[in-house]
């Protein structure tokens, strides 16, 4: 089975064609945000204020990289556990967020939101963070530098390896795997 090549911005048709277990190589722009940044993003959303990046079509990567060594684009940058962001994700997807990348289970409200909004949840390779760093060609902090590793970063990635966990039809690879 060959990998599916995707480039941002992602459109609904592309996302609806993805199925759980599909291997994807993603290129383009993605934004890192984890616990602290999500709290702030949703606060801005609720107050009707401008977010650090445009949500429609955007991809959020749940990641807090290790510090960037001299001469490198970024430090190691694998995914963190996505479930901690579950309370925030439906609101962001309602506002246009197209896909999220992390590792681990999402709750039912995120799975339902993926169906309602035609959004997809991908897993990146947990713990293979030096490998993922090689896919990052540009990295820039665009909001809340005081959050350190948790700041929002704009990354340009090339061929980032991902696996579809939750598709737009309400399926879940993690559940399917253990039912096999």
């Amino acid at each position: 089975m060959s990998d599916i090549i995707l480039t941002t911005p992602l459109n609904k048709e592309q996302l609806q064609s993805l199925k759980i277990g599909d291997k994807v190589l993603l290129s383009g722009i993605i934004y890192t945000a984890r616990d602290a940044a999500h709290k702030r993003l949703v606060a801005l959303l609720v107050n009707g204020e401008k977010l650090p990046f445009e949500l429609p079509g955007a991809v959020i990567y749940y990641a807090g990289p290790s510090p960037t060594p001299p001469g490198k684009v970024i430090g190691s940058v694998g995914p963190t556990t996505s479930g901690r962001m579950d309370d925030y994700t439906p609101a962001l997807q309602d506002a246009g967020l197209a896909a999220t990348i992390g590792k681990g289970k999402r709750n039912q409200s995120v799975i339902d939101s993926c169906v309602a909004n035609k959004a997809v949840y991908f897993a990146a390779l947990g713990g293979a963070a030096a490998l993922t760093a090689q896919c990052v060609k540009e990295a820039e902090i665009i909001a809340w530098p005081e959050l350190g590793a948790e700041a929002v970063r704009r990354l340009r990635v090339e061929n980032m390896p991902l696996v579809v966990i939750n598709d737009t039809n309400g399926n879940d690879l993690y559940i399917k795997a253990v039912e096999a």
Partner: peptide, 22 residues
């Protein structure tokens, strides 16, 4: 998946990067 996990070890060693960002 495990191939990539194994490949990560070599990249971390060569690039002097931590195996995991955590």
């Amino acid at each position: 998946t495990i191939d990539d996990i194994i490949k990560n070890q070599q990249i971390a060693a060569d690039q002097k990067l931590p195996l995991c960002q955590d």
